[in-house]
């Protein structure tokens, strides 16, 4: 049973993350009166990229070559250390500071890879990414910290457990911290209003600019890592801020099935909400983004004060 749960824990995010991206795209297409590609298209894209030849610039150093593996590996490590379907897969890396550290590591390597080749667009992407990251981190850490205070633990599994036991969904600090985390989620996963994942305009890109020089299998890893991160944040939001339905440690198979269904419904709602947001607003001007992230930081501070 534990083996099965561990397999689920390790494989769930990388296997389903392309679907999350695909679903977001097809819901967006529907909102725009388009038919759009199948939600399974990202799998085909990854398959195609993995089988393509690569072009690597002569100016690229080892950093450019290893970055995709580190970035992808980091997202796998994060996926293994957050509560997903069941609480049985608890280990020593579940602390929220580990999560924040791993995320920072991932961001650092993407940004490094972006400037490595020396192409002007990569440099742009990296500098914008670092600006956003420095503002996002506050909101991210503090909103998680509010949860830690409310539940007297910094262990993510502990928080998820305590939250689902308490059954208090609509307490004010939780909602306030949830909003703050939601904004950080959009910034970390490079969605609207921060970045436009569908843009073809090289001068406006952030994430896409950093990976612009990649091709073939390494591009596939970068894209896949971005998809993983997207689903990781959705899972974190679902299990920490809407913490019901997660299976307790040692639960039976049927309970785990139910918890899986609830997980998918939550993820679907999140994907739908993001697609709706991306279809109904324009992207913000880049220098207005810090304002939004600052608001998120203030909200999480309020949540902490309320939680004390």
């Amino acid at each position: 049973m534990t083996t099965l749960l561990w397999i689920l824990q390790l494989a769930l995010i990388p296997l389903l993350s392309p679907l999350a991206i695909g679903l977001t795209r097809s819901i967006k297409a529907r909102f725009q009166n388009r038919r759009g590609a199948s939600p399974l298209q990202p799998y085909c894209d990854l398959w195609k990229l993995l089988h393509k030849d690569e072009v690597i610039s002569r100016d690229a150093s080892w950093i450019f070559r290893v970055a995709p593996f580190i970035v992808f590996g980091t997202t796998l490590a994060i996926a293994a250390s957050i509560p997903l379907l069941s609480l049985s897969t608890r280990t020593h890396t579940n602390d929220l500071l580990v999560l924040v550290g791993l995320l920072a590591l991932e961001t650092f390597w993407i940004a490094l890879a972006g400037i490595d080749v020396g192409s002007p667009f990569g440099g742009f992407g990296s500098s914008r990414q670092m600006m956003l990251a420095s503002f996002t981190e506050g909101a991210l850490v503090l909103s998680l910290f509010a949860l830690a205070l409310m539940n007297s633990t910094t262990d993510l599994f502990g928080i998820a457990e305590a939250q689902s036991m308490s059954g208090h969904l609509f307490v004010v600090p939780l909602i306030v911290a949830g909003i703050s985390f939601g904004i950080a989620l959009l910034a970390e996963t490079m969605r609207y209003p921060f970045d436009n994942p569908a843009t073809h305009l090289e001068l406006t890109m952030i994430h896409e600019a950093m990976v612009l020089e990649y091709s073939g299998p390494r591009l596939a890893l970068m894209e896949w890592a971005a998809a993983n991160k997207y689903l990781i944040f959705i899972a974190l939001f679902g299990n920490l801020f809407l913490p019901f339905g997660i299976a307790a440690a040692g639960a039976s198979l049927s309970v785990i099935c139910i918890s899986a269904i609830i997980f998918f419904i939550k993820a679907l709602i999140a994907v739908f909400a993001i697609a709706a947001l991306e279809s109904s607003i324009a992207k913000l001007r880049i220098f207005r983004l810090p304002d939004l992230l600052f608001t998120a930081t203030v909200l999480s501070i309020i949540a902490i004060v309320l939680a004390l």
Binding site: K28, Q32, Y192, T204, S279, I281, A282
Partner: peptide
């Protein structure tokens, strides 16, 4: 113009 602001709905229309 709407697409370039990221307002994809308008762009698609």
């Amino acid at each position: 113009i709407m697409t370039d602001t990221g307002f994809n709905f308008g762009g698609a229309q």
